[in-house]
Design a protein around this nucleic acid. Structure first.
Lengths: 208, 208
DNA sequence: TGTACATCAGTGAACGCGCGTTCACTGATGTAC
DNA sequence: TGTACATCAGTGAACGCGCGTTCACTGATGTAC
């Protein structure tokens, strides 16, 4: 008899799981309209809930965006770890992680947009975001350090990590702005391919 | 007698040169408050003029920002040209231009912010901005092409230009977000110096 | 040089809008006995 | 199992705000004769 199963197990209060639904509505909205256009009222509307409801789960608009940035950095850290796993040389690892970074910026476009607009989530009031960012950077550093070859004089792992991050970030940012589309079409190539060339440059320097 | 000199020569109508004053007020405002916070009314206030006045000179808010982006690309093209002038090898030229790019992003911070936020100036309706962007990119390409060494198999100038642009852009963007400040402090270095290392990598690859 | 007219850069008030956030509340869910 | 109470996720109306933009205008400047 179905009445027994009616005793909903993990389904929380009224709505079910509004907190997460707000987060995913926000991601969807930002994908369409950017971090600027986006409004808290519209998120509530999209979640089918009154304008007051989000305040049950987030202190304010910035707090919702901070949560998204934080989750974004965690997703990025995972992606970098997974990408580096098969690598056997330092250069190969760096190349793989740089590729993964650019792919992440496309597959988690809304996260990426929020993560790198500190103003929209009121960075100083949300240190947990910066901490999550540090953990993602630490993945880069750790992987690079663990594959360092003995004697060769190479920049420190921290230094290399910053350089690789900056390069991948540039690729991702220009992609996001659409600045590369016409350019790379003219070269008879697609942007992602072009950008993985940046990563290969690193590999060439490191493994030569 | 001063009455003769009273015949103001180039001073235009009532205000003098409101159009340019609006542009520079906007730059100042964006430096403080970002492309988001910025409002047309506030610009008018800062220029000491009624809210209607800017519409005498710009179709709307987006048009004012488009003008700033366009001028920004022109300034950037100049900066790149000047930076490359003393270079004798391809690698040296690329490194110099990448450094100049990052310096530009700091010395013309507001321009830089507007240039790479296509949404705020309504890119599709302002093709002259993209054209100015192409001219800046063309400086990179031309310089690189003119210093190509004979036989060596190197990526095409267009390709190299895109790669250099992306790398410098990443450095500049992370600087702008403040993402590098704590990081590079931990490395006992300053961001600009760290970032010029990206450029040196390119040089190493090209001139080796 | 003087006058009538056209131009056009500005004024200042007003428009409608959607926003973030708060108030006072309701009604479903969980808990103690 | 039943009842009284506490909790708390929601509702819906309202707040004050600053925005981009438009309206009808004024008054300074330039131009034709």
């Amino acid at each position: 008899v179905p009445t027994i199963r009616k005793k909903r197990v993990a389904a929380p209060y009224h709505h079910g799981d509004l907190r997460n639904e707000l987060v995913s509505s926000t991601l969807q909205l930002i994908d369409g309209v950017g971090t600027e256009g986006f409004s808290l009222r519209e998120v509530a509307r999209q979640a089918g809930v009154s304008p007051r409801a989000p305040y049950q789960h987030f202190e304010n608009k910035a707090a919702l965006l901070a949560e998204i940035a934080r989750r974004g950095y965690e997703l990025l850290a995972d992606a970098l770890r997974k990408a580096a796993a098969p690598a056997r040389t330092q250069g190969d690892a760096v190349r793989r992680m740089m590729d993964a970074y650019v792919v992440f910026s496309r597959t988690h476009r809304s996260h990426f947009r929020v993560m790198f607009r500190p103003a929209v989530y009121d960075k100083p009031r949300h240190p947990e975001v910066a901490e999550a960012g540090d953990r993602a950077m630490a993945v880069l550093v750790d992987v690079i350090a663990s594959l360092a070859r003995g004697a060769r004089s190479t920049p420190s792992p921290e230094r290399l990590a910053v350089l690789a991050w900056a390069t991948a970030h540039g690729a991702a940012s220009l992609l996001e702005d659409g600045a590369l589309e016409r350019r790379s079409a003219a070269l008879g190539s697609n942007p992602l391919e072009l950008l993985s060339e940046c990563a290969s440059n690193f590999e060439a320097l490191l493994d030569r």
